[in-house]
């Protein structure tokens, strides 16, 4: 039963992961490479505001490419990054499938509606809310907190996002009978509260001294959109696999439930 869901999740993750891996190779890697170039203080053709006078902190006025001693070549980095993009999608989709199995009865709508609701909750908790405090780091970013403190902050924000999503969902279920729009409005309150709290209360931890603001916004925008697309894609694929397995799945659920000792 759960294994069936997980299987569909991993399959959906593979499909979404191939698309996402291609995105990393074809779009993200070249984009990040170009930004790295700008932050490194060369390639003046593309530099506008950010570059003049702002070299990479540890790379005073280098005349050519990556002096920023990296442990591996760019090709290796691109291949491994694409592979880990696929793994990332499989991880998200696998976790998504397990959560879908557990929360399927509590999610609103049909298969697609349930899958997209859960994906939205996942994207909000795993990415969107943490990014309000720790925005996606563009190469050259500097953080005022150490890595351990940032990982702890990140974990805390994921938990807060999951909690808010859960409250919101529970609220919607409770209020749905009294009118759909009112229920949606009231159910979005917990989300609004954590978003406003994260956006206003948190100090800014990450700064981008080396890169122009517009470019930072563009790279962050690409990150946000690509993660949103990844979630939408894996939810869509999962819903498709799930619906295709449709009747079989329900039969299995009934068999599993029937095989339980009656409580």
């Amino acid at each position: 039963m759960l294994a069936d869901y997980l299987k569909r999740g991993v399959a959906a993750g593979l499909v979404a992961g191939v698309a996402y891996g291609l995105y990393i190779v074809l779009v993200a890697s070249p984009l990040l490479g170009a930004v790295h170039g700008l932050g490194g203080g060369h390639d003046s053709d593309h530099a506008h505001g950010g570059e003049a006078g702002h070299g990479h902190a540890h790379e005073a006025g280098g005349a050519h490419g990556h002096e920023h001693a990296e442990a591996v070549s760019e090709t290796t980095a691109a291949i491994v990054s694409a592979g880990s993009g696929v793994l990332w999608a499989i991880l998200l989709a696998g976790t998504f499938a397990i959560a879908y199995y557990l929360f399927e009865p509590a999610l609103p709508g049909d298969v697609v509606g349930k899958a997209l609701t859960l994906a939205a909750a996942g994207f909000f908790s795993v990415s969107l809310l943490p990014w309000l405090v720790l925005p996606p780091m563009v190469p050259g970013a500097e953080a005022s907190l150490g890595i351990d403190a940032r990982l702890a902050t990140y974990a805390g924000l994921v938990a807060a996002g999951a909690l808010a999503s859960g409250l919101s969902l529970a609220g919607y279920r409770r209020l749905a009978a009294g009118g759909r729009y009112r229920a949606i409005a009231l159910a979005s309150l917990p989300i609004a509260v954590v978003v406003i709290a994260a956006a206003t209360l948190a100090p800014s931890i990450v700064t981008q001294p080396a890169i122009a603001g517009d470019l930072v916004t563009a790279v962050q925008g690409a990150t946000v959109l690509s993660q949103a697309a990844l979630w939408a894609c894996l939810a869509g694929c999962f819903a498709w696999f799930h619906r295709r397995a449709g009747n079989a799945g329900t039969d299995r659920l009934e068999t599993d439930a029937a095989s339980l000792p009656t409580a």
């Binding site: 995105y23 990393i24 990296e70 442990a71 491994v80 990415s127 780091m137 563009v138 790279v219 993660q227």
Partner: peptide, 19 residues
Amino acid sequence: PLVHDSLHDFRHAAGITCH
């Protein structure tokens, strides 16, 4: 470092916090 740098583009692309 070896693993971390291999994942460099991916971490930035996914907006993962560590750097």
